[in-house]
């Protein structure tokens, strides 16, 4: 791939980096990333990946923009209230970087459609707001051999890990969604808007580092932070051979929709 003059200038601060360079930028431009959820996490992820020049960005979300979203979902603006989130986000991406090809899926992902949606992408970002979707994305990515970034936020807390085939998955730590009612929902719990931005940009950095193949991803470890006291910590873990989806004798061999609280925690998340 040969960069044109405008691209050399647009991406110059990437190209300067020894670990990115022309070769890394070319990989970013060739990258195809699917973002599931265009809310609190999906918004910063989409903005940074678009600015970075990721060649193809898929957006999957069935919701429309609500006035209460604007406190943290920074890709949507006040006039967007009532419009489909994926269309609102697509417009912003086009304004940031016309090089990016955006594909929208104006639907809630479920067991029946997720495999078909993720199959053409190099990497999947979980920006959803509920446990059912998080487990579904995990299972679909494990079964489909797709790397993905898990992210969850609530109140002042955030957590994220990255799955790449062969390493520990989300279910290796969290075997199953908590039963409905066992966790507070967003409406009960609330979320500091900037926490969504903090976690989303970490996820975006994971995507970019995966595409260029440099550095150590958040693989086999989970990063947890609390923004009230601003403390970060990291917990290492290993792939569980008894994991129901990625273990040696998996019990989950096909996708199904889990039942759970719409906005679960600890950390179902609050997109």
């Amino acid at each position: 791939m040969e960069l044109n003059e405008a691209q050399v200038e647009r991406y110059s601060r990437h190209i300067i980096l020894g670990d990115v360079g022309v070769e890394g930028q070319a990989k970013i431009l060739a990258g195809k990333v699917l973002i599931i959820g265009t809310g609190g996490l999906g918004a910063p992820v989409a903005l940074y990946l678009a600015a970075a020049g990721v060649g193809t960005i898929g957006l999957a979300d069935g919701d429309v923009v609500d006035l209460s979203n604007l406190q943290r979902q920074v890709i949507h603006f006040t006039p967007d209230v009532g419009r489909a989130k994926v269309l609102s986000a697509k417009e912003k991406i086009a304004a940031i970087n016309p090089d990016v090809n955006v594909i929208t899926y104006q639907t809630r992902v479920d067991a029946s459609n997720i495999a078909g949606i993720i199959k053409d992408y190099d990497f999947v970002v979980d920006g959803t707001d509920n446990f059912a979707a998080k487990f579904l994305i995990n299972d679909a990515c494990v079964l489909g051999g797709k790397p993905f970034s898990h992210g969850g936020i609530l109140r002042f807390d955030g957590q994220t890990l990255t799955y790449v085939p062969g390493h520990a998955c989300y279910r290796c730590i969290f075997k199953a969604p908590p039963p409905p009612g066992a966790v507070p929902t967003c409406s009960q719990a609330g979320i500091l808007g900037a926490v969504a931005g903090m976690l989303g940009t970490i996820q975006a950095a994971e995507v970019l580092r995966y595409l260029i193949g440099r550095g150590k991803l958040l693989v086999d470890r989970i990063l947890i932070f609390n923004a009230l006291d601003m403390k970060f910590r990291e917990v290492g873990f290993k792939r569980d051979p008894h994991c129901p989806v990625c273990g040696d004798q998996p019990s989950i061999k096909a996708l199904s929709d889990e039942r759970s609280a719409v906005c679960g925690t600890k950390f179902g998340g609050c997109g």
């Binding site: 050399v8 200038e9 300067i16």
Partner: peptide
Amino acid sequence: CPLNFVKTKVELSK
């Protein structure tokens, strides 16, 4: 600067 360095890297990459 730093676009001259960027363009140098672009040429080297070829």
